[in-house]
Every structure is written in structure tokens, then in C-alpha cells.
Amino acid sequence: MYGLELENLCVDFGNFKLDNINLKLRRGCITGLIGRNGCGKTTMINAIMRQLEATGSILYNGKPYKGNEEEIMNSLACVFDKPHFNQNLKPKKIIKIYNAIYPDLDLGKYYSLMDKFRLPHELKLSKYSFGMQRKYCLILALCRNADILILDEPTSGVDPYDRGEIMDLIQEFIMDENRTVLFSTHVTADLDKIADYVVMMSDGKIILDTDKETLTDGYRLVQCETLTPEMQASAIGVQKSMFGYVFLTRDKDIKEGEGVKVKVPTIEEAFVHLQMDKRGLEL
């Protein structure tokens, strides 16, 4: 069963198009969304969250939006790429309104997370740092007890210690196997830790949708001093540096040797090389 199903989703801004997006997010899984700046990640998230007009269809837990608006909006929680609150408001005011709007809000969890991340209740949001605002938005999303959690760069500006805490919270959120998480980020190290699936976007299209193991274990990252013709034949996204060459290859039998180092790539390494040479995407 899928938590979120996108079918032929299109958004047209004139100068930018989200082009025929087809994507299925499995329940009980964390799907990482990666891509270069301006590739359409935030546009796709805004379309899922009904913040802009689109064509195509989206099913939330198997249900269309029309006719199920109330249920669906209750089951969706999101951390947007920018704060969606008036900066002059204080958290204590926001939570009062939130509490009135969302009947399933877990206030106990809210207060405990506010204490955990040391966020003051009496301070205006404008006085919060960027990282604090990201954490505040994440707390609001997590204490909603929603079925589908959409995260648009929730850890940007957050210190490494709290990032670790956030990863634990997201994993805890997904524990009951009935929830779905879409996690868009540029900090791919976070996805290395918690993602089950990885979706890669480029120029408004999905160019890769696979499980994390296939992405990382399906390739090898090779560092070598000289590039032989055999290596060149299978090399994907060759990067030249002062120490030699770095490239990705699908040849898993490539052997380490003198001046040749081979390892399983991280998501970031795979992403960088696949962006350089999209021929390598044919898994």
C-alpha cells in the first residue's frame, strides 16, 4: 500500500515546468528526495500540499483530494522550505491556534520537544535563528500525529547534534509502519542514515527512483591516478583532480590495486557523478 501516489503531475510556471511526475511512496518507508537547486523539489512538495495549481492526480493513502479534503489535510504534515508563520508571532500564540485547528495535536509531545530543542515559548519567531525556526516547524509537524510527513530541507541550518536528534525523531515517527515520509534535502548524509528509497530530480523530471541499496551498492566509486581505456569505457561522471581521477562505475568487479581505490559510494557521491553523466542512471 502506498501513502502517496502521484500520477502525471504537472505544474507549469511558463519558465519552469514540473513535467509528468509519477511517483509512489511506500508506507512505513522514508523516501529521500534529492536534486540540484531549482530542479523542482519544492514545487512538487507545494503541489502535494495543495499550495499551487497543478494537473494530474495525487492519491493520499489511496484517496483522491476531492471529497476527502478534511481527512487528507488532517493526515498531512509538512515542514516547508520557508517559515509559513508571521514572524511577529510567538510560539505560545501559534500553538494556541494550532491546538484549536488540529484535534489530534499531541500537546505533551510539543512541550517535551520544545524543551528538548531548547526553544523559548515567549520569544517572537523573528528572534529565532534560522535553525531554530526549522526545528520549530519540525516540532509542529511531528506533534500533529499525521500519516504523511513531508519535509523540505528540515535540517538546513541545524547544528550536527540536533540533526542527529531530528533523524532519531523521524525514524521514531515511521516506526508503526503505517506512516509515510518524503524527505527533501541537500544534506545527503542524513539520507545515508535513514532513507529507504531515493528519488532524484532534474529539470522538473524524476530521473531516478530506487531503493537506497540499489543506488549505492549498484555502483562503485573509483579513485585512480591514471585512467586506462578499460576504465574510461565504464566510467560515469569522471572528475579530474590534482591527485588523479574519480569516477563512478557499474562494474562491481573492478579490483583495487596500485594507485586504484574502490569503495561503495555514498548517496552524495553517487548523486554528483550521476548528475555529471546521466547515462549512468540506467540501472
Binding site: 507545494n46 500540499m49 495543495r50 499550495q51 499551487l52 479534503e69 478534511e70 481527512e71 487528507i72 489535510m73 488532517n74 498531512l76 509538512c78 516547508f80 509559513h84 508563520f85 491556534i97 494550532y98 485547528i101 488540529y102
Partner: peptide
Amino acid sequence: NSPSLATLMPISE
């Protein structure tokens, strides 16, 4: 100004 809490409120369009 979207996104906003009003546009996300769980009520029908």
C-alpha cells in the same frame, strides 16, 4: 502568501 496555516487547515475547499 502561501504556504500558510489557513491554506493547510483541514476543512473542505
